[in-house]
């Protein structure tokens, strides 16, 4: 009986008192020595932890691989691309002036001007990635800074910032962008700036709303009592709770901005031809989508892959930043 009993007890000790409960049982005897076998976890910084957790997420890794691949393609475009993306080939058009299909010379065929589609896709990655990442990053920084400031400090700062946001949101953004771009000479830098300025409003609204609820949580009061400065509270205590909405909005935003660039390109205010961008390629090809669907299909696929990759990584990051997800 007692043998059996010991065995069961041991089983209980490992099952019930394994992880969380180890501390629970010892909690009672404060002065007594602590269980010597309690695991001592070496301290790791948050970023290391995030990476450790992200590594276990297969989908996020696939997304990350895709993003790295896209970046490599964009950076090494001149070496990878089989042709000059702006060169028009005589053999790239049929006798009747139509683009040709895939061949040894043009792996994905040509466009309406007889340019190599693959090369244009590869070079297009440069513009689209730069726009998607930088413009979004710019919008993100603006949105987070404004949202945090407005939500945390309240008062006239909030009134000013949020009314400005409302006005921006009510303003027809295309008109605004068109006006801006036509005043300033269109270039990649200007495009990033304009798209960033146009797209900071939704992020500001979301962050502002979240901050309003988080600042009322008791741990924020506790941090203030601790003697934390406002900047520290915002950075250490509030910002980490905004990771989820920031990532969701950013990964959605990347798709939106890539497409926004294509819209601007379509009306001639985006990247100036002949520099290729995926959005511009779609707008050029859409007139021929019946006779030459590949003109729209491939750049569309590229945008989709990019957006999907960012979304997967975003999902993974959101979970990796949340310590409560770790055990699930």
């Amino acid at each position: 009986m007692s043998d059996l009993c010991d065995e069961r007890e041991a089983a209980f000790a490992t099952a019930g008192l394994g992880s969380e409960a180890a501390a629970e049982v010892t909690a009672g005897d404060a002065a007594a020595g602590w269980a010597p076998d309690a695991p001592l976890i070496a301290h790791r910084t948050t970023w290391q932890e995030v990476w450790t957790r992200l590594r276990r997420d297969r989908f996020a890794l696939v997304g990350l691989a895709a993003i790295i691949l896209l970046v490599v393609i964009a950076v090494f475009a001149p070496w990878i691309a089989p042709h000059d993306p702006t060169a028009q080939f005589d053999e790239g058009l049929t006798m009747r002036g139509m683009p040709v299909g895939p061949s040894g010379q043009f792996p994905l065929g040509t466009d309406t001007l007889g340019r190599d589609l693959l090369s244009r896709l590869i070079y297009g990655a440069r513009v689209s990635l730069v726009i998607g990442v930088l413009a979004n990053g710019f919008a993100l920084v603006l949105g987070v800074v404004f949202g945090l400031t407005a939500g945390y400090f309240r008062g006239w700062v909030e009134t000013l910032l949020m009314r400005a946001t409302d006005v921006m949101m009510a303003f027809p953004i295309y008109l605004f962008a068109v006006a801006l771009v036509s005043v300033l000479r269109p270039s990649l830098g200007i495009l990033v700036l304009v798209i960033g300025i146009v797209y900071w409003t939704p992020m500001t609204r979301v962050i502002h709303g979240e901050v309003l609820s988080i600042r009322e949580k008791e741990f924020v009061d506790a941090a203030r009592l601790t003697g934390c400065t406002s900047v520290r509270i915002l950075y250490r205590h509030i910002l980490p709770h905004l990771v989820a909405p920031i990532i969701v909005y950013t990964s959605l935003g990347i798709a939106t901005t890539i497409l926004f660039e294509s819209t601007l390109s379509y009306i001639g205010l985006g990247v100036q031809p002949p520099t290729p961008s995926w959005g511009q390629m779609i707008s050029e090809g859409q007139a021929y989508y019946l006779s030459a669907p590949h003109l729209v299909l491939y750049p569309g696929l590229m945008i989709m892959i990019t957006v999907l990759a960012f979304n997967l990584v975003g999902d993974g990051l959101r979970d990796a930043f949340d310590p409560q997800q770790r055990r699930r």
Partner: peptide, 17 residues
């Protein structure tokens, strides 16, 4: 130790308690 928490758990997160 003073408040009766195992000090070896200091790298855990609040939800584990």
């Amino acid at each position: 130790q003073t408040v009766g928490i195992n000090p070896n758990t200091l790298n855990r997160y609040p939800h584990e308690f």
